[in-house]
């Protein structure tokens, strides 16, 4: 009777449409985030994450409407990230029906936003997203740094120290994306995932690099993550969430089947 590890499909959403081409053959509108979320719900997804990659601020209202529709039709937890700058942005998304909001760059420029929003809305809805890249050379002690702007700009912040600080400020969960691995599909960066998961007292979601089902297993077993987030392996129909869950359960991981 333990807690199940979670599988969280992530959708990149631009102006209310799914990008990075979700390919379901038998789906009416694979560009509609709510339709795709409903499909993942049917397959047994434990949560859904929408990442808003809309460039202009004016188009953000579209995301609010998408979140409202999602919350009216799909009854599993929803995390919304991307473009969250102010406490007010968090309130807007929570009122639209998001269960959690993920803060990334804003926390780096102003860590107090984490404390303030956790106190205002509760830690349970504040996810801090960390984009980490390995900066140590082979032979050196492993070291990971936080990067912004899709992995292009180093911040000089140590990823593990940063995660501990976010936990102390009141974050309820860490979404850890290893930049070296993202999109390469060689698996999660197990080193940083495990280091952070063991350093903090809050749940950690592993993200970035999942290319097959063994990677999901490794993220949980070796990386000690509480949940695994993946995009492309589900979007292109390589595996269904059901298949992934069964595969993980067969390898001794407690799942909600």
């Amino acid at each position: 009777m333990g807690l199940a590890k979670r599988i969280i499909p992530c959708l990149d959403v631009d102006q209310g449409r799914v990008v990075k081409g979700v390919q379901f053959v038998d789906i009416r509108d694979a560009g509609d985030p709510v339709e795709v979320a409903r499909r993942y719900n049917d397959q047994g997804a434990d949560e859904i994450t929408f990442l808003d990659i809309t460039a202009s601020h004016e188009d953000r209202d579209t995301m609010v409407h998408t979140v409202e529709r999602m919350a009216s039709e799909v009854f599993i937890p929803l995390t919304v990230g991307g473009g969250i700058r102010k406490v007010e942005d968090i309130r807007t998304m929570l009122n639209a029906g998001a269960d959690k909001v993920s803060i990334n760059t804003a926390a780096i420029f102003n860590p107090e936003i984490v404390r303030e929003s956790a106190e205002r809305f509760g830690s349970q809805c504040i996810v801090v997203a960390i984009d980490a890249k390995k900066v140590s050379q082979p032979g050196e002690l492993d070291r990971w740094e936080i990067f912004t702007h899709g992995g292009r700009k180093p911040t000089g912040l140590d990823a593990i120290e940063w995660a501990i600080k976010m936990d102390q400020l009141g974050a309820g969960e860490i979404l850890l994306t290893s930049m070296d691995q993202d999109g390469v599909k060689n698996g999660y960066d197990i080193g940083v995932t495990r280091a952070i998961s063991e350093a903090v007292g809050i749940p950690v979601i592993a993200s970035g690099g999942a290319g097959n089902l063994d990677h999901l297993v490794e993220g949980i077993k070796e990386g000690k993550a509480d949940a695994v987030l993946a995009a492309s392996i589900f979007h292109f129909g390589e595996y269904s969430i059901q298949e992934a869950k069964q595969y993980m359960a067969d390898r001794g991981i407690e799942m909600r089947i």
Binding site: D46, Q124, G201, P203, R256
Partner: peptide, 20 residues
């Protein structure tokens, strides 16, 4: 803060996710 399961594995708080 020192919550553990029956195998001695440390448990995260909040309790977040799907339990029986």
């Amino acid at each position: 803060k020192e919550l553990q399961d029956s195998n001695g594995e440390r448990l995260k708080v909040p309790h977040m996710g799907w339990s029986q």
